[in-house]
Amino acid sequence: MCFVRSTSVIRWLVVVPVTAILGALFSWLHVPAAWILAAIVASAGCAIYTEEELHVHPLVGNVARSMIAILAAAPIIAADPHQLLHFIVPGLIVAALTIGIGLAGGLILARSSAEISPETGITSMLPGGASLMPVIAQEVGADFRYVTLTQYLRVLCVAISLPLLVPLMDVPSGGVEHPAVFHSWQGYLTLIAIIIVGEPLGKLLRIPSPSILGPMILTILAAQFFSHPSALALPPEAKLVAFASIGWAAGGALSTTALKMFTKRLPATFVFIGVLMSSCALFAVPLHLWLGTSYFEAYLGTTPGGLETVLALADEFGAGPSVAALQVIRLISIVLVASYLPSIVRLLTRRR
């Protein structure tokens, strides 16, 4: 037992600095989801080389899940409630269409392979909320390794394609200044409290997906007591730890068998990503006519993932509030759907 512990410590002493080096390199190269991908590569390489899974300490995993929930609450806090109300109907329609494609794609994937459960197929194919899906996948009993790899492959495809497609669209003129981030000791104490009590409170209140919705709801409520929406923004270092923890959990659990399964499913995964992105591009056509926005803004609002890249491009080109509003509405919808996934799977797979 002592030897096993020492071996695990030695492996982490290798994985952590390798993650830091790769994360810095990928960030410098502007690779999307740089730190998550770096952690996956480092931990997966270690697990495969040593032929032994690399487990993240439960305490680190719990803290990381809460921080991911806090990050997910950020665009909701920043969005104007009136804007969310104005865009709620088109937002829900877009969410329903894209989630419907995700549910169908997930079930098709599950039926095509006995190794993939309906829960695994659906959580890997739900568009958006990539950082949340691995956490939710663990809660509903899905294979979070496959879910994480599939979700971030989609994010990578979306994030790489967006800058290439922007020159082909009619973008708004001008940009906006990046808002300042205000941190205070009250904000830091509030964040610590949310990380500690968010999940237990969610379980006590029987909220679905308590590890996500508990801290997320607490963050949104607590933000109302601060004058600036960024008062509860996580420090950059905390974000890196949260992202790296997701990557470590997915990569460290990779075995040769799991890697072979993922590789075997790659063609179907790429086909689905192509179908999803093409569908969103088509959805954006009537949406931009309905809302009176540019096609560029409508496409950003429907893009299935790569939220950070989407919001960065929207900010850079001075896009209107529709982008953030549509993405936030879909994010909330996806979290709710994923939270009730076991019931949805039973309903969809029930034999007539």
Score class of each variant (00 low, 15 high):
residue 105 G to Q: 08
residue 160 I to V: 15
residue 282 L to S: 10
residue 51 E to L: 12
residue 144 F to K: 04
residue 260 K to V: 12
residue 230 S to M: 11
residue 69 A to V: 05
residue 320 G to M: 07
residue 332 I to Y: 06
residue 267 P to D: 07
residue 160 I to S: 12
residue 124 S to W: 07
residue 43 S to C: 10
residue 238 A to K: 05
residue 247 G to C: 07
residue 209 S to E: 01
residue 166 V to F: 09
residue 167 P to D: 06
residue 288 H to I: 02
residue 349 T to W: 09
residue 152 Y to I: 04
residue 283 F to S: 06
residue 159 A to L: 02
residue 43 S to M: 08
residue 262 F to D: 00
residue 65 R to H: 11
residue 182 F to C: 06
residue 306 G to T: 02
residue 341 L to I: 07
residue 161 S to Q: 03
residue 310 V to Y: 05
residue 65 R to Q: 11
residue 253 A to T: 09
residue 49 Y to S: 13
residue 327 Q to A: 05
residue 148 T to C: 14
residue 63 V to Q: 02
residue 198 G to N: 01
residue 104 A to L: 15
residue 277 M to T: 08
residue 43 S to D: 04
residue 347 L to W: 15
residue 328 V to W: 03
residue 58 P to F: 11
residue 319 A to M: 07
residue 300 L to Q: 04
residue 133 M to Q: 13
residue 68 I to E: 00
residue 10 I to S: 11
residue 306 G to K: 03
residue 200 P to Q: 10
residue 160 I to Q: 05
residue 245 S to H: 03
residue 254 L to P: 00
residue 97 L to C: 15
residue 158 V to Q: 01
residue 135 V to K: 02
residue 202 G to E: 05
residue 25 L to P: 00
residue 23 G to N: 05
residue 84 L to K: 07
residue 316 E to T: 08
residue 220 I to P: 04
residue 109 L to M: 15
residue 83 Q to C: 04
residue 72 A to M: 14
residue 305 G to A: 06
residue 314 A to K: 05
residue 224 Q to V: 01
residue 124 S to H: 08
residue 65 R to A: 14
residue 173 S to P: 00
residue 233 A to W: 02
residue 14 V to A: 13
residue 175 G to A: 10
residue 5 R to I: 07
residue 145 R to E: 04
residue 205 L to Y: 09
residue 13 L to E: 02
residue 168 L to R: 06
residue 47 A to E: 04
residue 302 T to P: 01
residue 136 I to W: 01
residue 340 Y to F: 15
residue 248 W to R: 10
residue 72 A to C: 12
residue 29 L to D: 02
residue 35 W to Y: 12
residue 292 G to F: 05
residue 86 H to I: 11
residue 260 K to D: 09
residue 271 V to D: 02
residue 152 Y to F: 15
residue 276 L to R: 03
residue 270 F to I: 15
residue 50 T to I: 02
residue 294 S to E: 08
residue 248 W to L: 10
residue 74 A to M: 14
residue 106 G to R: 03
residue 317 F to P: 01
residue 52 E to K: 15
residue 284 A to K: 05
residue 232 L to H: 05
residue 157 C to S: 11
residue 85 L to E: 09
residue 12 W to S: 04
residue 21 I to E: 03
residue 50 T to G: 00
residue 323 V to P: 04
residue 53 E to T: 14
residue 291 L to V: 08
residue 92 L to R: 07
residue 13 L to T: 08
residue 115 E to D: 15
residue 175 G to S: 14
residue 97 L to F: 13
residue 343 S to I: 01
residue 16 V to K: 01
residue 220 I to V: 15
residue 101 I to A: 15
residue 101 I to L: 15
residue 163 P to R: 09
residue 35 W to G: 02
residue 108 I to L: 15
residue 117 S to I: 10
residue 41 V to M: 14
residue 82 H to T: 08
residue 8 S to K: 11
residue 140 V to H: 05
residue 101 I to M: 13
residue 86 H to G: 02
